[in-house]
Computed example of a mutant assay.
Amino acid sequence: MSRNIFITGVSSGLGHGLAKVYLEMGAQVWGCSRRAPAGLIAQGLHFTSVNLADATAAEPVLGQFIEGVTHFDQVILNAGKLGQIRDMKATPLDDIRETMEVNVFANKWLLDLLFERVPAIAQVVAISSGASQSGSRGWNGYSLSKAALNMLVKLYAGEHPEAHFTALAPGLVDTAMQDYLTAQPTDERYETLERLKAAKGTADMPDGETCARKLIEAFPRLRELPSGSYADIRKL
C-alpha cells in the first residue's frame, strides 16, 4: 500500500518543504494552496488550487480532488494566516475574522470532508505555534486562532479515536511570514520581534525544507502522546 499524504499550504515555506521531502521519499502527496508550486507538480504532486477562506467555493473542489483516495497516512493542516503585528485595540474585527477563517474554520470543514470521504486516516497534525501559548503582545488574531486550533484538534480527537491528532508547534521557520516579521521597525512594545530578528539567518530559524525533515522524523513520536495533545517540536 502506497504512503499517502495530504498537506495544505504547499506553495511555499513549511508546506512546500513537507511536500518536497515526502515526494523524495516516494510518497503520494495531495496538496492544495492558492498558488501552484510548479516544481512540486513536476515532481508528481497531486495539486488543486483553492482559497481555504472561501469554504463555499473550496469545499466542492477539494471533495472532487480527493475522490477515490482510500487512505491518508498523514493529514498535515499547515496553511495559515498571520495578520499584522499591532495592538489588539488597533486590530479590526474583520482582520481577526479572516485569520480565524483560515487558521480555524477552514480546518473544521476540511476535517469533516476528509473523514467523510476517506475511509482511513491514520494521523492528523495541525501546525500550531508557540504564539498559541505565549500571548505575546501584538500577535492578536494569530495567537487567538492558534489557541482555538489547539482546542479544535482536541475536540476532533475525542470524536475520531481511530486517528491520532496533534497540534504541533514547529519552532521558528524561515518563511515569507518571517520576512514580514523581521522587516518590522524596532518597537519596544513587541519584544518578540527582536528575538526573531536575531534568529533570522541562523540555525535557530531553518528553512522550510530543513524544518520539514525534522518534523517528518518526529511524526511517529507524536503518536506516543495522548491524541489531541499540543506539542512543541523543541521540547520533544
Results as ranks from 00 to 15, higher is better:
1 M>E: 12
1 M>P: 09
3 R>I: 15
6 F>N: 11
11 S>N: 08
12 S>H: 10
13 G>Q: 00
13 G>P: 01
22 Y>I: 03
25 M>E: 14
26 G>Y: 04
27 A>L: 13
27 A>P: 01
31 G>K: 12
36 A>F: 01
37 P>K: 05
37 P>S: 05
38 A>S: 11
39 G>N: 11
40 L>P: 11
42 A>E: 15
44 G>K: 12
47 F>P: 08
48 T>D: 15
50 V>K: 08
54 D>C: 15
54 D>N: 10
55 A>Y: 15
55 A>V: 10
60 P>M: 12
62 L>N: 02
64 Q>T: 11
64 Q>P: 11
64 Q>M: 14
65 F>D: 14
65 F>C: 13
77 L>E: 06
79 A>F: 01
79 A>C: 07
81 K>P: 01
82 L>Q: 12
82 L>S: 02
83 G>Q: 08
84 Q>K: 11
85 I>F: 12
85 I>G: 05
91 T>D: 13
92 P>R: 13
94 D>M: 11
99 T>E: 08
112 D>W: 00
112 D>I: 04
116 E>L: 13
118 V>S: 09
118 V>F: 14
118 V>K: 02
122 A>H: 12
128 S>M: 15
128 S>K: 15
132 S>E: 07
137 R>K: 10
140 N>C: 07
141 G>K: 06
142 Y>K: 07
143 S>R: 04
145 S>E: 00
148 A>E: 07
151 M>P: 02
153 V>C: 01
154 K>Q: 00
155 L>E: 05
159 E>A: 11
167 A>L: 10
168 L>Q: 05
169 A>Y: 13
169 A>R: 07
170 P>K: 03
176 A>P: 01
176 A>K: 09
176 A>C: 01
177 M>A: 07
179 D>R: 06
180 Y>L: 10
182 T>V: 04
184 Q>G: 03
189 R>A: 13
190 Y>V: 00
201 G>M: 06
204 D>M: 04
207 D>C: 05
210 T>A: 03
213 R>N: 00
213 R>A: 07
217 E>I: 01
224 E>I: 07
225 L>E: 06
228 G>T: 03
228 G>A: 09
230 Y>A: 06
235 K>G: 03
